[in-house]
Design a protein around this nucleic acid. Sequence first.
DNA 1: ATGGTTGGAGCCCAA
Length: 262
Amino acid sequence: MSFTLATWNINSVRLREGLVSKLLSEEAPDVLCLQECKSPVDKIPLQAFADLGYPHMVAQGQKGYNGVAILSRLPLEEAGSRDFASLGHARHVAARLPNGVTVHNFYVPAGGDVPDREVNEKFGQKLDYLAEMRDTFHADRPERAILVGDLNIAPREDDVWDHKKLLKVVSHTPVEVEALGAVQDAGGWTDVTRADIPDGKLYSWWSYRAKDWDAADKGRRLDHVWATADIATAASDSRVLRTARGWEKPSDHAPVFARFDL
DNA sequence: ATGGTTGGAGCCCAA
């Protein structure tokens, strides 16, 4: 069985219901993982997505902030959700596909502006969140699993538009990159996107603040697709749908895709 | 060194 999967920080699923529908219609991933839904679960416009062939959803939501959802053409079995770092935020949900593959969908805290937990509580929360992810996957090593989401860290030099300029910018600091690497090691996760596209600059997020995001191209790869080693070799066709960043009233993130032949 | 934009809630906070 093969399936395609996409992950997209949608920055309000209700405001951008039309863009989600456009993606489902035009790209037709079997599974779509959304972050920053900014909606209680019962206010996600599920009927619109069901009408397009996506009747299955598992989600965690809250009013106004955060929120994660997995939409699927295939039946989903709820596989839990965790409140890492006890923030009381809807940042994680997991589901099991009919082939037994578990999909973890994460929205890691952005971490505020100053990369110092002594002066910026949010940065500490981000590091605590990552540490609990690491400990969880270390204690219970995942198998036949996929981890996707907005991890809010661009780990590699070619995941950002200027490595040196961003070394002290939250999302690309060495301490964050190290913490993300520890999560990856603890779970035995392979970075599927970079296994498929090993060379060259690759971004999934461009700030709203740039005058011309496309021309300036000051992007970062914050959105990731990982898989455990037992299924990572089944992955292919990774891509970032950069054109979605240029759609009308866009999210500041572009969807990231992968295909799995299992 | 600074300011730039967006969304949601509710007259500012998070990204």
